[in-house]
Design a protein around this nucleic acid. Structure first.
Length: 562
RNA sequence: AGGGGAGUCGCCAAGUGGUAAGGCAUCGGAUUUUGAUUCCGACAUUCGCAGGUUCGAUCCCUGCCUCCCCUGCCA
């Protein structure tokens, strides 16, 4: 962890960097081009953050380029909504792609032309097998497949048929174009893979121009080559596809149709404890109303994390710390949270907020100061200061008072003293209870000689936060816990559905009394509520001018007590 | 079972034929008007297991075990 890229992130060594360094050293490449190729069929999640940081990060570090390319080859699943969100999220994360946004669909003509080439080389044929039949012919993991009866069609017939497919002369699903490779290959991806299917669906970019669409493997390899990608990084499940990736490109390079051969490199996906990241499952959570939407702060989506107050630099730090390898992994939640805290530490203004109010009457308040300037951050003066006002009646948190002290207790106790943060040391003289014995309020006196200095002759160790009742602003705060109660909700030993592990306490809405300084906050601004945690003004619901003070809990502070 | 991968501290993760980086977590201790931050210190005689080669192996060889991925006209 010593080098630094444009985002000022430390760079950890990994096998992909080693490959690039070597390629640059040997002169195989003089500069690199990577790419981030999402399909616009959903919202980006933490796993994508890893890939984004890797691809864009590599380009930055080695002064290369990184393209954003939408892999839009399956119109049925794709939409403009996702395109917009993906672009926005990448920018929010702090990255910029090189040049214009690219699309696999930009290459549809090229892809068609190359398919014709493969047919002419007798390396592709139109197949009439139904989906069911094709599955039968494919064989299985241990048995070889058998050749399609259509495999021997003449080049001329294939040419005619493929054109007819393109012209819409056949029904959806009635024919496919397949590469002629090897039906007995132990690698199933090489058993005459389908590269074109007939699908009458309107495409977000090409509309109804096409009724045949190219498949992923065929499209991706060619798109990478056309963009002169040098290193095509993807996740481990594509390892088996690499031979096909290379097969397609090699043939086209040999034919002089393509002039570069990108290298596909696979790394392991990022998995996080207590969550799921499969698009299908995430979508289920949204559709079933188990969460409020894709941007629900409990979601592992990047829009969700953003709404929770996870700042981009924190996510980048997290991704970098996770590293890149081929080992299976399930990252600890504290690992993520510590990266977020670390980035928030120096950026979040401190403010006081009381969640479970306990009224305290300061009996000799009339002799004290009514307000005091307090820094927004104990170490970073540049964050400025605000006026903290004191009055006779204040709230402290119930958890900061005990009638009788317990071992190690550093907070207020009957007869004891404690420092009010940014203010006086107070001493509790009396506890007022109702008939039921519940504590209603405390009577305390302030030590007038302790403003900005320690009392003489004794040490008051405890410091608690508080808020002046007449000045306090009441806010709604949403407290979050993990969405699931299981470490791996989608991998239960007994095969139970992930939704059975939804945490019933994952969202709790409470109110809090906060210092009036909160009134000038803007949506998406993160604060540290001292001694409690980091909280963000909700992007959508926080509206100071309408007195709607809505906060989401981002992450707790580390707590050494207990 | 066929093919492709992976197994280094509780969680990530470097590393190399020469005697195990770092981060998170954890545990001590110092400072502190946040039990936060910061700062010190501790934390794998050991690298899935068993053999072999070697002066020497986590790194090389052999065998075994465990886990992941692959039988979409998804990506």
């Amino acid at each position: 962890m010593n080098k630094v890229n444009n985002n000022d992130l430390p760079v950890a060594n990994n096998f992909i960097r080693n490959i690039i360094t070597e390629d640059l050293k040997t002169g195989k490449h003089t500069n690199i081009i990577t790419r981030f190729p999402p399909e616009p069929n959903g919202y980006l999640h933490v796993g994508h953050a890893k890939s984004i940081c890797l691809n864009f990060g590599l380009a930055q570090e080695f002064k290369g380029k990184c393209n954003l390319r939408f892999d839009d080859t399956n119109p049925e699943k794709e939409s403009e909504e996702y395109v917009k969100s993906i672009e926005e999220t990448i920018k929010w994360l702090g990255f910029n792609w090189d040049g214009e946004v690219k699309h696999a669909s930009d290459y549809f003509d090229k892809l068609y032309e190359f398919a014709v080439y493969f047919i002419k080389q007798d390396l592709a044929y139109v197949c009439d097998l139904s989906a069911f039949e094709m599955r039968e012919y494919r064989g299985n993991l241990t048995e070889a497949g058998k050749n399609s009866p259509y495999r021997t069609r003449s080049i001329e017939e294939n040419l005619t048929l493929f054109q007819a497919m393109k012209n819409g002369e056949f029904a959806d699903g009635s024919k496919t174009l397949r590469l002629k490779i090897d039906m007995s290959s132990p690698n199933i991806n090489l058993r005459d893979p389908v590269i074109y299917r007939i699908k009458r669906a309107s495409h977000i970019r090409t509309g109804d121009k096409w009724c045949i669409y190219p498949m992923y493997d065929y499209t991706h390899s060619i798109s990478d080559a056309l963009e002169n990608i040098t290193h095509s990084c993807c996740t481990l499940e594509f390892e088996d596809h690499r031979p096909l990736y290379d097969w397609v490109i090699s043939h086209l390079v040999t034919a002089g149709l393509l002039n570069s051969h990108p290298r596909q490199i696979e790394f392991s996906r990022l998995a996080l404890q207590y969550t799921v990241t499969s698009k299908r499952k995430l979508n289920e959570l949204v559709q079933l109303g188990l969460v409020s939407g894709w941007d629900d702060p409990r979601m592992p989506t990047l829009v969700g994390m953003r709404r929770k107050g996870y700042i981009a630099s924190g996510i980048r730090l997290f991704a970098t710390r996770c590293g890149v390898s081929k080992s299976p992994n399930i990252v600890d939640v504290p690992f993520l949270e510590s990266a977020i805290r670390e980035e928030l530490e120096s950026k979040a203004p401190r403010i006081m907020a009381v969640f479970d109010p306990l009224k305290v009457v300061l009996t000799n308040f009339d002799q004290g100061a009514t307000s005091r300037n307090a820094s927004f951050h104990p170490q970073c003066d540049e964050l400025g200061e605000r006026l903290v006002e004191l009055s006779q009646e204040i709230y402290i948190d119930q958890s900061d008072f005990l009638i009788d002290a317990i071992p190690g207790w550093q907070r207020l106790v009957l007869g004891g003293e404690v420092r009010l943060r940014h203010s006086y040391v107070i001493k509790c003289h009396e506890v007022i209870k109702n008939r039921a014995g519940e504590i209603l309020e405390l009577r305390c006196s302030i030590d007038l000689n302790t403003l900005g200095k320690n009392p003489e002759g004794r040490k008051v160790k405890g410091v608690i936060h508080w808020v002046s009742i007449p000045h306090a602003v009441k806010a709604n705060v949403r407290l979050y816990e993990q969405l699931f109660t299981e470490v791996q909700p989608d991998n239960a030993e007994d095969g139970r559905d992930f939704k059975e592990f939804i945490n019933p306490n994952s969202l709790k809405e409470v109110s809090a009394f906060i210092e009036p300084a909160i009134k000038t906050a803007k949506p998406e601004q993160v604060f540290q509520f001292e001694r409690v945690g980091y909280f963000v003004a909700d992007m959508k619901d926080f509206n100071a001018t309408n007195n709607q003070f809505v906060f989401n809990k981002t992450v707790s502070l580390k707590d050494g007590w207990k």
